[in-house]
Design a protein around this nucleic acid. Structure first.
Length: 118
DNA sequence: CCACTGACTACTT
DNA sequence: CAAGTAGCCAGTG
């Protein structure tokens, strides 16, 4: 399965703790500029099948985009645990925490370590 | 294949 | 800064 989905997942699992990526950036690194909305979609569906650091993905405004208030609160907590400070209730400084990576070496990432073993 | 959906984005008011 | 608008693209039925 060498698709956008797999690439995007690899990008996401590569994000270091204490940093974040925007949906658009994940899409770009995954090879599909403009597919930002799909990133959100797969996070929603794949975070149950994989142990993804989904909380490190936010929108281009540095805000949490979750519709569900419970989940968005959880995301905020997880980010704060990694040392990320919030400017207000749902905003952080992208300038400070955005992971500035240019290229992902997909070949070196093994997804099997992130699969949920039930 | 077509239509619809959406954890998005960039641009304009 | 808030709200509206028009692109965006992969997954789903």
């Amino acid at each position: 399965m060498n698709t956008f989905t797999e690439q995007a997942i690899k990008v996401i699992v590569s994000v270091p703790a204490g940093t974040v990526l925007t949906y658009g950036r994940v899409a770009l690194l995954a090879g599909s500029p403009g597919a930002a909305r799909q990133v959100g979609w797969l996070l929603n569906s794949m975070s149950e099948k994989y142990k993804l650091p989904w909380h490190r993905i936010i929108n281009a405004q540095g805000k949490i985009s979750l519709r569900d208030p419970v989940s968005s609160y959880e995301q905020k907590m997880l980010l704060e645990d990694e040392g990320i400070e919030f400017i207000n209730d749902d905003t952080i400084s992208l300038k400070k925490y955005l992971w500035d990576v240019e290229f992902i070496e997909f070949d070196q990432i093994d997804l099997k370590g992130f699969e949920v073993v039930r």
